[in-house]
Structure formats: structure tokens, C-alpha cells
């Protein structure tokens, strides 16, 4: 009885998690699209292209995560377990660590080598790159011994 309840709770949590993934992905993609549109409208081609690239990358990653999760849920596997949580923790910490240097580089190079439209564009690109870094580190640690 307790096992059934635990499974029901887990399935409920997984459904909530899947819904959250869809909502967050849609919000991020919508933001990326808006960011690109405003950049293109202001004549900033590089910013617009970067926005499109980031939105597409996140869309591809979201579709991959969703399909994987949906298949697993149908087969009765949990969306997350202790190993996948460990992989996420490692990827998050590495992405954060690398992005600190990246933000530092952006700070030093802005105005000289890189010309940003405004602070919001620089922040948007930095956050997008952080997301891409996370995806890359996740893919790496998901295949490595941890």
C-alpha cells in the first residue's frame, strides 16, 4: 500500500515536472524570439542572430528532454533519480564556474572588442550562453563516470 502511494506521489511529481519543463521552455523560447525581433528591428543583426541561435538551441534541448521524459514515464521509470540529480548538480556547478569567467571576459571586452546594444542585451546573451554551457556539461557528465 505504501509502495503504491509512493509510486503515485512520484508519478504526480513527474507530471508536474514535465509541465514545468514545457512552461519554462516556452517562456524562454518566447523571450529569445522577442529579444531577436527587437534586435533586428533596431538594426542589430548580430544580437538578433545570437537570440535566434539561443532560442533554437533551447528548443532542441527542451524537445530532447521532453521526449526522453515522456518515453520513460510511459515505461514506468522516474524522470529523475539519484544519478541524474548528481549529473544535473555537476553540470550546474561547472556551468556556473565557467560562466563567471565568461562574464568577466564580457565585462573586460565590452566597448573594445564587443559592442552591445545595451546592458539587457549583454545580460541576455550571457544567460543564454550559461544555458548552452549547462547543456554541454550535462551531455558530458551524463556519459562519464561520476
Amino acid at each position: 500500500m505504501l509502495l503504491i502511494n509512493n509510486m503515485e506521489v512520484r508519478e504526480m511529481k513527474d507530471k508536474i515536472r514535465m509541465t514545468a519543463i514545457i512552461i519554462v521552455s516556452l517562456l524562454v523560447i518566447a523571450t529569445g524570439t522577442l529579444f531577436s525581433l527587437t534586435s533586428f528591428m533596431k538594426g542589430d543583426i548580430a544580437g538578433g542572430v545570437a537570440g535566434v541561435f539561443i532560442a533554437i538551441t533551447i528548443l532542441v534541448f527542451a524537445i530532447f528532454v521532453f521526449m526522453r521524459g515522456y518515453k520513460d514515464m510511459k515505461k514506468g521509470f522516474p524522470l529523475q533519480d539519484e544519478r541524474s540529480r548528481k549529473v544535473i548538480e555537476k553540470a550546474t556547478s561547472k556551468a556556473f564556474y565557467v560562466s563567471m569567467y565568461l562574464l568577466l571576459a564580457i565585462g573586460f571586452l565590452s566597448d573594445d572588442l564587443i559592442k552591445f546594444r545595451d546592458v539587457s542585451q549583454a545580460t541576455g546573451i550571457a544567460v543564454g550562453v550559461m544555458a548552452i554551457l549547462f547543456a554541454v556539461f550535462w551531455a558530458y557528465y551524463n556519459r562519464m563516470e561520476i
Binding site: R10, D72, K75, G76, F77, P78, Q80, D81, E82, R83, S84, N142, M144, E145, I146
Partner: peptide, 24 residues
């Protein structure tokens, strides 16, 4: 898959455990 379901983990976790590539 049977073992993963019994233990309540993902199949990959069992795969990595078998290979000795994951410290549970």
C-alpha cells in the same frame, strides 16, 4: 529495466552501476 523498476531508478543508472561507472 526490470531491476530499474524494482529499485525505482532510471535504466541508465543500472547500466552505469553494472559498468562500475557510478558510485551509488
Amino acid at each position: 529495466e526490470d531491476l530499474a523498476r524494482k529499485v525505482g531508478v532510471r535504466r541508465e543508472t543500472i547500466l552505469f552501476l553494472e559498468k562500475g561507472k557510478y558510485n551509488p
